[in-house]
Simulated scan of single mutants.
Amino acid sequence: MNKLSPFNVVSLTLGFAFLYIPMVILVIYSFNESKLVTVWAGFSTKWYGELLQNEAFLDAAWVTIRVAFFSSTIATLLGTMAAYVLVRRGRFLGRTLFSGMIYAPLVMPEVITGLSLLLLFISIGLDRGVLTIVLAHTTFSMCYVSVVVSSRLVTFDQSLEEAALDLGASPWEAFRLVTLPIIAPAVISGWLLAFTLSLDDLVIASFTAGPSATTLPIKIFSSVRLGVSPEINALSTIIIAIVTVGVISASLISKHQISKREREERMAAG
């Protein structure tokens, strides 16, 4: 096992400090008694109570959760199907164009994506609201799901699926009973990634949201322009906690699936 050199230790320390010290400071000041976010006046949880009474933030949070859930679910379905076609169907007419369209949002600037979707919705006469945000978030997050699932399908032993077909299973039954359980950790990871990206998005949502639907990042950005309040610190702390729980849950699910598969392989070998 290679030991970390002093240079690597210093680099990692500075990197993690740059990433996480601002978050730690934000969490600490969310428990600040004072209205001034940079002046510590004692420990207090009153800003969390104030946040729970702020109807504007609560409405925006509810819109954000709905959008993230529906967009990540649709993106996971479409992204998984796209990954399966790209990995399992080999070369077919239009494959290059299809893969390019799938992966284009990965390199496309968010401003361009948001503006193009805005023009599309205006041209077809679709009023901006929750539906347009869901469609927009599905468009850009589907490619991330496709990348995650494709990486798992590439390493998947296709002989297991072929064995199920030889035993009389239909292609759909082979996918549902054999392939899907094995790639489930990747599918779940893709869903969580799409959910997180939707929660975090500001640029695309600002183009596709209407007056009847304001997401939480838009609301926070609008409020910060008038000055940072302790309520925003409290809200940010809650978001950090939710994302942390999601990441830990995904890691535990992945480890459980890997351990389960290793046990099954040992039992089969024994």
Rank of each mutant, 00 (worst) to 15 (best):
L119I: 05
P181C: 04
V147H: 05
H137F: 07
W172F: 11
D127C: 00
W172I: 00
F121L: 01
D127F: 03
L192R: 03
A174I: 03
G129L: 06
L131Y: 02
W172A: 04
G114M: 06
S198D: 14
L120A: 13
T179I: 09
L135D: 01
L118W: 11
V148K: 01
P109D: 06
L117M: 14
S123F: 08
D127H: 04
V145T: 05
L167D: 09
L118G: 09
D166T: 12
V187D: 05
G168M: 12
V134N: 10
F175E: 09
V130W: 00
F121T: 04
P185A: 03
V154W: 12
A136P: 09
P109V: 04
W191R: 09
A136M: 02
I204L: 10
M142I: 01
L153C: 06
R128H: 12
I182P: 00
L197Y: 10
S123D: 15
L118Y: 15
V130Y: 04
S141N: 15
Y144Q: 03
L180R: 05
D157Q: 14
A163P: 02
V111T: 12
P109C: 07
S170K: 08
C143R: 00
L180C: 10
D201G: 05
T196N: 10
I183P: 10
A169C: 09
E161W: 10
V149N: 06
T196G: 14
E173Y: 05
D166Y: 06
I188G: 10
F121P: 00
F140R: 01
F121A: 00
A186M: 08
L193Q: 03
V203C: 05
V154F: 15
I182V: 09
R152G: 01
L153D: 02
V203G: 10
I204P: 12
E110H: 11
V148W: 05
G125L: 04
D157T: 07
T138M: 12
A169T: 01
V178N: 13
L118T: 03
I122L: 14
I182M: 14
S198V: 13
L180I: 04
T155Y: 11
S170M: 05
V134G: 06
L202N: 09
A194D: 04
W191N: 08
A136V: 03
T139K: 01
L199S: 03
L131Q: 06
P185W: 02
L131R: 00
Q158W: 14
S141H: 01
L153F: 02
S159A: 11
G168F: 13
I112C: 11
G125N: 06
S146A: 15
F195D: 05
E161D: 07
A205P: 07
W191S: 10
S116V: 10
D127Y: 00
L165T: 07
T179C: 13
D201M: 08
A136T: 04
L131V: 14
A163Q: 14
Y144K: 02
L153Y: 07
I112T: 12
T139M: 14
L199I: 13
V130Q: 11
